[in-house]
Structures are given as C-alpha cells and as structure tokens.
Write a protein that binds this DNA or RNA. Structure first.
Length: 953
RNA sequence: GCGGAUGUGGCGUAAUUGGUAGCCGCGUUAGACUUAGGAUCUAAUUCCUCCCGGAGUGGGGGUUCGAGUCCCCCCAUCCGCACCA
C-alpha cells in the first residue's frame, strides 16, 4: 500500500488518546524536564500556520527528551480572557464565555490534527474559576506584602505594621499611634506590592479602559489601534519597580538570546546618577541666597523651598544654565510669578490636553515657558531661571531637570530656541575649549575632560562624576542614586471579561475578601458596555456587593456600608492570568493550593520555553516578577521561571494584489502592464484564488459580488498578481490555514515542512512552494519499508558497512541538531539518509528500525505506523533513542587536500589510522612535493587533522 | 537618535564553528518509463568563459599558510526602545 497519511494519522491519534500515551506523573525515577509553549489566546480566526511553528519545535524537543529517558512535562492551555471576545460580545450580545468556549473547541480540533504530545489532563484556562482562584489569591498576597529594601525581598505587611507600632514614627507631622484606620491604610498603601493610587495612565476612550505601557505603541492601543491619552486615574498597580534591580540581575542566570535580554534591559532602563536638591530663589525673596550648605532639606527645621532633580551627568553641574519642570510638576503653581502666571497656566493646560500621539509626533518641536522663578546652583551659587516644558516627563526621575545645553541635545535645542546661554564644561582634550555659539550640536558623549568646572576642572569625566557626587553628599544636598525607566504595572482594566478583584470597599478603603471565599466568581451580566455613569461593565451586575458578616456575594441593592459593601468593579489585565500559569501546570487540579510543594519541588521551573519575542516587554517581564514574588514568599523554588527561552520567528504572510484602474473601477490591470502606479489601486486578493501569482479569474469573479463583472488587461493570457510580505491576517486575505495542508499532505509533512523552512528563531514569509519536496521524502521513506508491489517488506539480513555508516552518521547529525535546536538541518539529514538508502535499495531492519525512532519526534504518525509494522507492540514514544557508534563512522582512508602556500593544490589518500607525522612524511615523500620544494627544506608544515596540509616554503 | 540582529545561487537555506563555499529542498533544463502524468527514476543547474581557465558569500580594508566565519570602516534591510535627563 501507498503512504496513506489519511488513514495513518487519525488512527494513531486515537491510539495515543486511548493509551494516555502523553500522560505524565509528578513522580518518576527518570530525570525531569519541563518543555513549555506560550499558551494561545483562542481568537475567533482559529490557528494559522504561524501558530504551530513554535509548538512543533517544542513538541519535537519534548518527544526527543522522552526518547532520551526523561520524564517530560509538556502541557497546553488557553489564555482565555481578553479584549477581542469582549468586543465581539458588545457587538453581538453573545456572552464571551460562549464564544471563548467555541474558539477553544476549534483550537483544540486544529491542534489535535497536528499530532502534538501535550498532556491534556493538565489543561488550564485562565477564565476557569478553578484557575483564576489562584490569580486572585496571588493578588491578595501581593496586597498583603511590601518590599523590604534591606532584605531585598517581599515581606508581610504585618511586619511593617509591627515595626510602625514599635517605632511610632512621625508621618507628615502626625504620630503613627495618633492615626486613624483610614490614615493608616492610606499610608500602608505606599508600600503594598499591589496598591491603589492616582497615577497617570494610558486611557483608551474607544476601548473604555486603561492600558499598560506595553499595550500602547506610538500612542495607539495595540488591540484595535485606537488613540490613547494620558490621564490621572485611581487604579490598581503592581509595584514591579521594587523588583527592577533583581529583574536586571536575573537575566545573567538564564539562557535567553542576547537580543531579548537586551530588550528587557532597555525596558527596565537602569541608569546610575545623582539626585540633587536645588534651592529656590523666589523673586519675593530677592536676596541672593548664601552657600548651599544651609539648605539641607532633611535637617533644616524650616527648609528653604527646594526641589529635587535627577541627573546621570553630575559632572556637568557647572554647565547648568537653566532648569526645567514638567508641566505636571506640583511646584509650578507655587513658584510662578504673577506676571508669568497667565502664560504658564495656558501652557500647562495645553500640554496636559495634548494626546500622547500628538506629543510623540512632535518630539522635535520645542515648546515651553519661563516661570519667572529662579533656582540657585548649589555649587556655583548662580541664579538660574526655571522653565516649564513638556520635554521633561512626569513619570521619570522627579519630573525636574538641571539643563546643561552644551552636553545634552534636548537642552541644547531648548537653549537655542529660547536664546539661553550655553556653557561648555566638558572637552575631548584637556584645557581645549571652543565657543558653543558656533556648535551645531551638543557634545553628549561621556568622554573627555572637565573644563570651566571649579574643583573638578581637568578631571576625566568619570572621575569628575564621582567627585561631584562626593561633594554634594558631603554638603547634604544630594546623593548617588539609580533610576529605572520601568514603571509600575497598572493592573486595573475597566472591562468585563477578566478576573474580578477580590476586593471590597469600606469607607473608600479597599479590603481583600477572605482567602477561603475564593474564587470570587465573575458575575453574569447582559450588557457588556460601560455603564452610563462611566463605571466599568461590572456596574451592570446586580449581585455584586460583599456581605462581610456572612462572607458572601449579595445584591448591591443591599449595600448599607455597615455590613454590606461595594465590590471592586474593574477586572485584572490579560497578563494577570498568564503570569503564573506555568506553575499551575505542575499541579493543575489542586483545589487546596496554587500548586503543591511536592510538585514544584519535583519540576522546579521551566527548562525550555518556546514562544514569540513580541512578549519581551510584557508577559516575560510580568511572569518573571510574579515568579520572584512567589519565590520570596516561599512558593516557587527557583527565582527565574524560564531557564532557556527560544523565540520562534514570526511567520509572515505573502499577500497577493490585483490592480484596479482608478479611471475604470471594473478594469483590473495585470501587474506587468501597470505603467503608472498612481493610476491603479492595489487591492488585497485571497491567496487561495491565486496560484504562482496567477489569478484564477473565474474564482475572482465569484469571490465578491462587486467583482462579478470585472474585466481584465492580461499579459500572455494571464493575470499576474503583485505580492508583498505582510503580517498574516484575515484582513489581508493571506492566511494559510494548517487544516488545509494537513488534509492535503498530512500532519507529518506539515510538521517537517514548517521545520524545513529555516531556523526556528528566524522570521520568514510563509510559502508552500517547497512542501512537495518534504512530501516526496515521506513517500520515499515509506517505500524503503515496502517492495515494488507496496507490501511491507523488511529483511533481517545484516547491514553492510556502508549502510551502517549512513545510519550512524544520521543518528549523530540528528542528535546534535536537535540538541542545538536546529531542526531545519535535521530534516535535510533525513532526506540525505533516505536518498542514500534508496539508492542502495536497503530495506534492512537493523537500519530502518532505529531510523523509525529517530524520525518519531518529527513525524510521529508515520513513525508509529512503521514501528508497529516492524512488529513492535508498544508505542514508538516508549522506544529508546538510538546511540551512534564512533567506530561505524571511521573511514578506511581519508582524502587529504594538500596545498603549498596556496599556490598549488592536490589531494592524496591516506589510511585512516595514520598519525600527523605519517601524513607529513607521506606528503613530503610525494614526487609533486619533491619537485615543488626543489631540494629546500619546508619552512612550516601546517597539519589540521583529517582536513588539510599546508606547506610553506 | 540609541540598542540588537541580519546580509551566501533564480528562491528557502547549509557549511563539522578558522580548513576544498553552495549540502538539502524548491524552481529550471534534458532524458528514461509511460495511453497519460501534477506519479517515479536518472543527469545537469553560482556566475563569466575563447572551455584554457577566471571571479565569487552587501562594499572597502586588515589579521592569518588559509576568512562566509575573527577585527576596523562604510552600505542596505529587519526588529526593539524612543524627549527616560
């Protein structure tokens, strides 16, 4: 019989299901290994060929590890909460739970067809109450912990309270012991790792929710592309910044690509510098202030008003010619002089109302106003004007800067625009300066020597930095510090389809519901839009109030703020559920704990994580933070969750276009006949009606009613389409569905072909042109086991040396390739092997049986079929990975290329066991060599074993 | 602007990590078997060529007996961040 994948594949998929082949226990004599895929968001569009790429790679690795004798955890689940399901619900009224369920069923069906070895008994769904119970539980733990800077780890907030009780400090002029419950809770909120605060957020009016920084690109929402504005709102946040340093440091311990580590480092954005206090010299107090020493803000009982700035260039403090505050700065109101008030207020209002997109688009445009106020440079005692400008950001540092126009390009632009003085304080060469008025740009580099800089003049930049910081520390007006670009993660979403917060409000103070009452189930609602009052959709829920006495959810009509309290209306963001799912897989049905100590003690952490690099600044940061927190409180046993990470490249689509004439919208011009690109409109056309860039005209006419009477300008009787590489997306009609390919070629061919396309990490456009070659390989491979009449026929004869060599070379190459995740070369190796064996007409069991095991990770269905045909009764998944034998690879003789200093070159054959000296002697003894050397002794002989001999004369 | 990566035939890619560049596959060409083939098999396929050879891994330089691989300078493309002081 022929290679009939249609029969083979469903048969063995059923067999694996029936036999629970991929079921894995948390206990084994074997070593453990955890292979994880980033679980998918089940969108309505179903899987396209890009999704399985990473899954196939990880599946190969997981199967390989099993064959190598590991107990392998390889689970799969669904990141099921999210905006698209909710947007769809708003449009159609269909409950997100229903559409999500349908989408999951569709995903599962598609995944099953590809033959993955997931242990589906461990499936998790983030929207499942049994799962999000633990997301909520973790949130409560975050709420109940603070970050202890001394111990550098999370500690229970009760410890902080005990400390406050004990020390009874003054807080904003009031003793801790004199504070009431509300004041105390507000104070503690400054420390909790999950906290409620008024913070500037990315507000997306169209989506009706706030978004995290990584969910906003170029001032537009990632989902939907709607405008985003900056707005001050009371929101839940996670104090991820407390972990900034550990998030940087942890990157040293993991095997991730350098580029991804760099992306994370950039996102965290650590910079070292100094915080410096600049005293104010307000015009009402026109006396020039005496030495800065008098203004030690911590110690002076009546401090002169001063403000803090952050700089990474303390060495340039002698070059400060003005100061700049961000428009949101609280000091502006106090310091602005009456004559500048109107102007400043106008500017601040304008700046605050600008959308993020406008602000980002006009980065190059300089704007700002003078406040009329002055500060004093603490080192030079100079009076320096204070400006307001939106090039200083509220969210970074202190929202205030010392401007050094000579050595900062932004300050330089500002100074030039407002004609402010520019003073050079750093020079590439010692004591050499030039007039900054002649400069076309500032000198930003951190190299060279200080000039015009008082006591640091002549020092190298690095020394000057240290010296200035020492000085200001000594003066008590500043200190060394580190700033991070990373912001706390905003954790509230004004949406329905997410985890509810286990929080209720008593007199405006949030309290977590008791842990034993979890999960706090998401209530049913009918209308998914925000309420008329602007409340999130949960405002529609009637059963959404907390009965504190009876510990249960009750109707909100009962709220009396005595025993019945309102519950939080926001829900958690998408990254909440995906931040700890890898740990839940270890023990997914545990209803007592997140996961048992035994389970995490056995599996430790993820050995191999496969997924897209697009999560570099989102999920992969949040998950690392989440894990570190769980580590601090003694749940996780490893500080880093993902030991090795492989980023599969995105598979792009290859879109096809037709060109519609602008003059005649029924006329379509073939690509080669388009003379003026402006005369036609390119229109995406479904790639399924295009073959080799040739349009199927009949199907095009049927595709859309408006094309039914289309006319064409053809070349050579054909309509040639244009193409472009774009993201694979429904709207561009360039989606390749894996089901179609499975139906046509089988899952094994699809799996092999996706690997054959190129390195897993590399982005590449999808192209089915080569799939035939892989399909041919399988037919050829099948024929090795079958005779001319297509009946199964393997011989028990002993293999020849040549056949053994082919086998062992293949084992060696494939093993090495899998270890270094180079699956495209493994596929090539299989092809070479099949070609060689076919030309030798080899059908020997001793060769073919190990090959069946070798190919099983890549093509499990055909391997299982052949494995059983060979007479095995157990699954090929339980077989042993074949070992190669070095002896079988050794040749009788080697061919050595020999060259004489690159001038002449020939090849000689030598016995395999010959030593370096033998080889050199043999080469020297050859007539060609003698002739060439002409009696002289060679100067140098370079011998590279089994490679080459070079003789230098 | 800053950071990271990549650049090899008509195309996807490979090269034992410094050792005969172009493996494997697609495509193309020729042939075999065929009623037929979109099945299978065989051969050729980097470019130029007076068929003697010559050039060749984005361009230029360097190190080396030897460079696709290492170093320096450009060029191009892709990705990430982007007024982060």
């Amino acid at each position: 019989m022929d290679y009939n994948f249609n029969e083979i594949e469903p048969k063995w998929q059923q067999y694996w299901r029936d036999q629970h082949t991929y079921h894995v226990e948390n206990k084994s004599d074997k070593p453990h290994f955890y292979v994880l895929d980033m679980f998918p968001y089940p969108s309505g569009a179903g899987l396209h060929v890009g999704h399985p790429l990473g899954y196939i790679a990880s599946d190969i690795y997981a199967r390989y590890k099993r064959l190598r004798g590991f107990n392998v955890l390889h689970p799969m689940g669904y990141d099921a909460y999210g905006l698209p399901a909710e947007q769809y619900a708003i449009q159609t009224g269909q409950h997100p739970a229903v559409t999500t369920e349908q989408n999951i069923a569709r995903y599962r069906e598609q995944l099953d067809k590809i033959g993955f070895s997931f242990d589906w008994d461990r499936e998790v769904r983030t929207c499942d109450p049994d799962y999000y119970k633990w997301t909520q539980w973790t949130f409560i733990q975050l709420f109940n912990h603070y970050y202890d800077e001394e111990q550098q780890k999370a500690r229970p907030i009760s410890e902080l309270v005990a400390k406050l009780d004990n020390e009874n400090p003054d807080i904003d002029g009031k003793k801790w012991s004199d504070m009431d419950e509300k004041e105390r809770q507000n104070y503690l909120m400054n420390f909790r790792l999950a906290y409620l605060a008024d913070i500037p957020v990315n507000w997306c009016a169209e989506l009706g929710t706030v978004l995290a920084n990584d969910e906003v690109v170029n001032g537009l929402s990632v989902r939907g592309g709607y405008p985003v504005e900056r707005k001050l709102m009371r929101q839940w946040s996670l104090r991820i910044t407390a972990y900034a340093q550990r998030l940087v440091d942890g990157l040293e311990q993991v095997e991730w690509s350098d580029s991804l580590k760099e992306i994370q480092r950039n996102w965290i954005g650590r910079s070292e510098g100094a915080a410096v206090w600049f005293p104010l010299d307000v015009p009402t107090n026109t006396n020039v202030l005496p030495g800065a020493q008098a203004y030690m803000p911590q110690f002076d009982p009546q401090p002169v008003p001063s403000f803090e700035i952050f700089t990474t260039r303390p060495d340039t403090i002698f070059g400060v010619t003005f100061m700049v505050l961000c428009p949101e700065h609280e000091l502006i109101e106090q310091i602005t002089t009456p004559e500048h008030k109107a102007e400043v207020e106008e500017y601040v209002t304008w700046a605050k109302n600008r959308s993020e997109r406008e602000r980002q688009a006009e980065v190059k445009k300089v704007s700002g106003v003078f406040t009329g106020a002055y500060a004093v440079n603490p080192l030079t005692e100079e009076r320096i004007p204070i400006y307001v400008s939106d090039y200083v950001l509220a969210g970074y540092g202190t929202g205030a800067i010392m401007a050094v126009p000579a050595h900062d390009s932004r300050d330089f632009a500002f100074a030039r625009h407002f004609n402010l003085p520019i003073r050079q304080v750093v020079s590439l060469e010692k004591d050499v300066t030039s007039d900054p008025a002649t400069w076309s740009e500032s000198m930003d580099a951190k190299t060279g020597y200080s000039v015009n800089s008082g006591f640091v003049t002549g020092m190298k930049v690095k020394e000057a930095m240290a010296a200035v910081i020492d000085k200001i520390e000594q003066m008590g007006i500043g200190h060394r510090t580190v700033n991070y670009r990373l912001r706390d993660a905003i954790f509230s979403r004004q949406r329905y389809w997410g985890e509810p917060f286990p929080i209720y409000y008593k007199e405006g103070i949030p309290y977590p519901i008791p842990e034993e009452c979890l999960p706090l189930q998401l209530p049913e609602i009918k209308d998914f839009k925000p309420t008329a009052t602007g409340e999130p959709p949960l405002g529609h829920a009637d059963m959404w109030a907390w009965d504190e006495t009876n510990k249960r959810i009750v109707s909100k009509s009962l709220i009396d703020n005595k025993t019945i309290f309102p519950l939080e209306l926001s829900t958690m963001p998408g990254f909440a559920g995906s931040s700890g799912y890898y740990l839940r897989y270890m023990d997914p049905r545990n209803d007592k704990e997140y996961f048992s100590h035994q389970a995490v003690g056995y599996w430790q952490n993820v050995d191999l994580y496969v997924g897209g690099a697009e999560h570099g600044t989102g999920h992969l940061i949040y998950a690392r933070f989440w894990n570190k927190f769980l580590f601090d409180i003694g749940l996780a046993v490893k500080e880093e969750p993902f030991q090795k990470l492989v980023n599969q490249g995105m598979i792009q689509g290859r879109s096809s276009f037709v060109y519609r004439s602008k003059a005649d919208n029924k006329l379509f011009v073939s690509k080669g006949l388009v003379k003026d690109p402006d005369s036609v409109t390119p229109i995406h056309v479904d790639i399924n009606i295009v073959d080799n860039d040739i349009l199927d005209i009949e199907r095009f006419r049927q595709w859309r009613p408006e094309f039914a009477d289309a006319r064409f300008e053809l070349e050579d009787g054909k309509y040639i389409c244009g193409w472009e590489i774009e993201k694979m997306s429904k709207s561009m009609f360039n989606v390749q569905n894996p089901d179609d390919l499975v139906a046509r070629y089988g899952a094994d061919t699809l799996r092999m072909y996706e690997m054959f396309l190129g390195p897993v990490e590399q982005a590449k456009p999808w192209d089915t042109k080569g799939i035939e070659g892989v399909f041919r390989f399988f037919k050829k491979f099948w024929r090795l086991f079958h005779d001319d009449s297509n009946t199964f026929a393997v011989s028990d004869e002993n293999p020849t040396k040549e056949e053994l060599k082919i086998l062992h070379q293949t084992i060696k190459k494939v093993t090495d390739d899998i270890e270094r995740f180079s699956f495209n070369t493994s596929v090539s190796t299989f092809m070479i092997c099949a070609n060689d064996l076919a030309s030798l007409k080899c059908n020997k069991r001793a060769i073919l049986e190990p090959l069946t095991v070798l190919i099983a990770p890549f093509a499990p269905h055909i391997a299982e079929e052949l494995w059983h045909l060979l007479g095995n009764t157990e699954s090929v998944c339980t077989a042993q990975w074949p070992q190669y034998d070095e002896h079988q690879l050794v040749e009788d003789s080697f061919t050595y290329p020999v060259s004489f200093n690159g001038k002449m070159r020939f090849t000689i054959e030598l016995p395999a066991n010959c030593t370096q000296d033998d080889a050199v002697a043999a080469v020297k003894g050859l007539p060609e060599t003698q002739k060439w050397l002409a009696g002289k002794e060679p100067k140098k002989i370079i011998f590279v074993p089994k490679r080459i001999i070079n003789i230098v004369c």
